[in-house]
Design a protein around this nucleic acid. Structure first.
Lengths: 340, 340
DNA sequence: TTGTACGCGTTATCAT
DNA sequence: ATGATAACGCGTACAA
């Protein structure tokens, strides 16, 4: 592979002249040499070595997309929401002249190591991080970082892009209520540390309260959010004949699994049970009945992530920023009026 | 960020000694210095700069995943098959100690430039490439490359991982025939240059021929493979009342769209029309009726890709190899017996 | 307008 | 067992 030196030798000029031509510093070079060098660049198909450039210029033109999970073999890209978000981000990163390096990680300890390894200019965490994790990452990270779908109250320096989770929980629950439902459950991976889910739950509670509807402890169903989890849950709900008429789930794929599981045991959505999901994936339209869902604009989310990151990269020591994107209820076919 | 030099200075030894310790060349270093240096590495949280390493060592530990398409804004990751395949590959790449750099590209011209930019050790093309493109890429590429879902007859040096497309077309069509269907259509992005689809079509034809069923020109329906394409096609088929009882489509998502479109115009799968898709995605089980599909093992495919690439990377000038993975028919609910 | 010297962080080679 | 030096490919600063 041709290097600057090769081109310089062939052209009979110094390396710097070639470098200047390649980097568009045309003011410093005569037209004739520019022409000469450009020809040689084409002839030898010269391509700059970005590792070398990264070494000197302190900018690698590399942006890292990080996914973290407890299972080392987990395939994040079976999750359509993550997949779509990632695809949009890759496009935007590329359009802005950067390269995307992707990495799924296990322990958070070494995340910053990876960023340092490649001297990346910025990073985006696609999966939810707890506050303590965010603090630790920001402590050790060598570059700006955007956290997607995370919350941080303590850390004032964090860059965060998320959705209005409270509103999501609220409008879904309110939709149930407006349809006459009184016994409404909430299903998702609820935990103290997962603020995303906690906020949706708060929204759910707020809607109940507003309507003077009672909340019972067994309305909160803790579950993971895979299709299989939904399947199990749906069967169980149908069997136990829980005294509820509607369920809000924190993920579309969970709702879809739930729908199928319930059907297996004779409980049909929306006739016997109303259902609302979260994310608003294309998937909602593919299943039958079509899934009513709190939908977010993934393209907009990707755009916010990349914009925020670029801004932080260009202005050293930017202060913390939280971007909260709107959600809306996409009404489809899984919520029936309730006449009890 | 601490460098080798920093550690060396603090330890009062030379840079090379530190380098040797870090790279595990322990035979050349005394136990005491090893201990000393390891402590300092921890203390300063030293992380090797892989760009610098890449410069000297001629190995970047970087593997590029390439996606190519004519639309610069196309989000490949709305395609569940590509997403899942990519996710599996990233996992395997990581497990083998490499980093994944991902890039979607427009024109094929500059693909090799990207590989050269980062001095990548290997690359995987996830999307179908025509033979001429493969030839050109292999001509200019600086590293081994695996092409997924492509065919090459001319180029004996190509590394290719694909599925038994002929068999896929054959077993799907045969399944229709065994269920009494005689008028069977084929829908997909058929073209002279897309060998993938051509092979599936050949399998389809072979099954017809074997059963002495006539093939008519209008049995071949050329279409792209998005959900929306299926929607349009389904409506059209229902309206035109094409004289067919079954359709084999070259992608699940196309079949699902078709099913929905047909339903809109009063044509119900499988009662009025039998349907078989291709890929065997999880999606097949989410739709109703569940989609019968020619299914491939995506994990196995990812594994083959990475294994083949690593093998090629470790043995300079490996000869061309084609890995063809098996397919099988996953029978679900979209093919009814035909009693005409 | 063009060239020289040096440094980026690392590794390989050859000494000591 | 340890170190000095050159080299990888490029950019910055300064000199010519």
């Amino acid at each position: 592979m041709a290097t600057l030196k090769d081109i310089a030798a062939e052209a009979g000029v110094s390396v710097m002249t070639v470098s200047n031509v390649i980097n568009g510093n045309h003011k410093k070079v005569s037209q004739t040499t520019i022409q000469l060098i450009n020809d040689l660049v084409k002839k030898y198909n010269y391509v700059p070595n970005l590792s070398a450039r990264s070494l000197t210029s302190k900018s690698s033109k590399l942006i890292a997309i990080i996914l973290s999970n407890s299972d080392p073999l987990y395939n994040y890209f079976t999750n359509p929401y993550l997949s779509e978000l990632f695809g949009e981000i890759e496009t935007l990163v590329r359009k802005n002249g950067y390269f995307t390096i992707i990495r799924s990680v296990l322990q958070l300890d070494n995340v910053s190591d990876i960023l340092k390894n490649w001297n990346v200019d910025g990073a985006i965490f696609l999966t939810h991080q707890e506050e303590s994790a965010i603090d630790h990452i920001l402590d050790t990270a060598p570059c700006p970082i955007v956290f997607v779908d995370s919350y941080t109250e303590s850390n004032k320096n964090a860059l965060v892009v998320g959705t209005d989770d409270f509103k999501g929980g609220y409008i879904a629950t309110k939709h149930f209520i407006q349809n006459g439902h009184k016994k409404i459950a909430f299903a998702g991976p609820y935990s103290e540390t997962n603020k995303i889910i906690a906020h949706r739950f708060e929204g759910y509670l707020a809607a109940l309260k507003e309507a003077n509807l009672p909340y019972q402890e067994d309305y909160l169903i803790c579950t993971n959010t895979s299709y299989e989890d939904g399947l199990v849950l749906g069967r169980e709900i149908a069997n136990r004949k829980l005294d509820i008429t509607a369920i809000f789930t924190t993920a579309d794929i969970l709702a879809i699994g739930l729908m199928e599981g319930a059907k297996c045991n004779g409980c049909f959505v929306p006739n016997d049970l109303s259902l609302i999901g979260f994310d608003g994936l294309q998937l909602c339209n593919l299943v039958s009945p079509k899934l009513t869902s709190v939908s977010q604009n993934v393209q907009q989310k990707a755009d916010s992530c990349v914009q925020l990151l670029l801004k932080a990269m260009n202005s050293k020591h930017m202060k913390g920023t939280t971007v909260t994107l709107d959600v809306e209820l996409a009404i489809r076919q899984t919520c029936n009026p309730c006449h009890n």
